[in-house]
Computed example of a mutant assay.
Amino acid sequence: MPADALFWDKIAEKYSCSPISDMAAYDRTLERVTHYLRPDHRVLELGCGTGTTAVKLAPHVADMIATDVSQKMVDIGIGRAREAGVGNLRFAVAQPGTAPEGPFDVVTGFNLFHLLADQDQILEAVRQRLKPGGMFISKTPCLSDTRSAVKRLAIRLALPVMQRLGKAPSVVQFMTVAAWQRQIEAAGFEIVETGSYPDDIPNRFVVARRC
């Protein structure tokens, strides 16, 4: 089992009980995501965590598969979907690069890509799973653009200690919004919408169409 799967398994229960830190930003993100969803769409979510977002998005589409590396996260997601009565949502344990092949109309990844060492490979995997013209919708903390220099420094200093103690994932990428968006475009996408919700990190929301 990959090290990060063990990490997420370990914190799954605590994670599932943690409140969303900025509900207004989360609601704004959901609003923009659902703008691009259609009742006939097939959707794949990468890094679904405990399924909160998948449960909210699935009623807007025909079929949705939510994936995560953590079996315990997925188990919680299955329970949430059952409790919500969402019948068109399936879950699977998978690495981002080995998720179901599709093709899909939309692939999503929220708070995921800064935790991946192989971003270019996963972006290519996303592109391959999308229909021509399909949408990649993501939201990614771009830690190098954190507005507060003090906060930015604090994160950089604390992160290695937290990783050694098993309190943080083994990979956390520091990138800028500009660099991240260039990376998406270089992978064969056309960016059609961006925004930061919230904007103090910023947590960059990007909608990109497969070219």
Rank of each mutant, 00 (worst) to 15 (best):
residue 1 M to T: 08
residue 4 D to G: 00
residue 6 L to I: 00
residue 7 F to H: 10
residue 8 W to Q: 00
residue 9 D to L: 01
residue 10 K to I: 01
residue 11 I to N: 03
residue 14 K to P: 01
residue 14 K to Y: 07
residue 15 Y to L: 14
residue 16 S to T: 00
residue 16 S to D: 07
residue 26 Y to P: 10
residue 29 T to W: 12
residue 29 T to S: 15
residue 33 V to M: 10
residue 34 T to D: 06
residue 35 H to W: 06
residue 36 Y to D: 00
residue 37 L to F: 13
residue 40 D to P: 02
residue 40 D to W: 10
residue 45 E to N: 05
residue 50 T to D: 02
residue 51 G to D: 03
residue 51 G to H: 04
residue 58 A to T: 02
residue 60 H to E: 05
residue 62 A to K: 14
residue 62 A to T: 04
residue 64 M to W: 13
residue 66 A to W: 06
residue 67 T to H: 13
residue 68 D to A: 04
residue 69 V to T: 03
residue 73 M to E: 03
residue 73 M to S: 02
residue 78 I to V: 08
residue 80 R to Q: 09
residue 83 E to G: 11
residue 84 A to K: 04
residue 85 G to P: 09
residue 86 V to G: 08
residue 87 G to W: 01
residue 90 R to G: 09
residue 90 R to W: 07
residue 90 R to A: 10
residue 92 A to W: 08
residue 93 V to L: 04
residue 94 A to S: 10
residue 94 A to L: 10
residue 97 G to D: 09
residue 98 T to A: 14
residue 98 T to L: 10
residue 105 D to G: 00
residue 106 V to T: 14
residue 106 V to C: 15
residue 106 V to Y: 12
residue 110 F to W: 14
residue 110 F to A: 11
residue 113 F to Y: 05
residue 114 H to S: 01
residue 116 L to D: 05
residue 119 Q to D: 07
residue 121 Q to M: 13
residue 122 I to L: 12
residue 124 E to P: 04
residue 127 R to Q: 07
residue 127 R to S: 06
residue 127 R to F: 05
residue 132 P to I: 13
residue 135 M to H: 15
residue 137 I to L: 06
residue 138 S to W: 11
residue 140 T to E: 07
residue 142 C to R: 03
residue 143 L to D: 07
residue 145 D to R: 09
residue 145 D to H: 11
residue 148 S to V: 14
residue 150 V to W: 15
residue 156 R to F: 09
residue 157 L to Q: 11
residue 158 A to P: 03
residue 159 L to C: 10
residue 159 L to M: 11
residue 164 R to I: 08
residue 167 K to I: 09
residue 173 Q to H: 00
residue 175 M to D: 06
residue 179 A to Y: 05
residue 180 W to T: 02
residue 181 Q to G: 01
residue 183 Q to F: 02
residue 187 A to G: 00
residue 188 G to D: 11
residue 192 V to N: 13
residue 194 T to A: 08
residue 196 S to L: 10
residue 198 P to K: 07
residue 200 D to S: 15
residue 201 I to L: 12
residue 203 N to R: 14
residue 204 R to A: 08
residue 207 V to T: 11
residue 208 A to N: 04
residue 209 R to K: 10
residue 211 C to E: 15
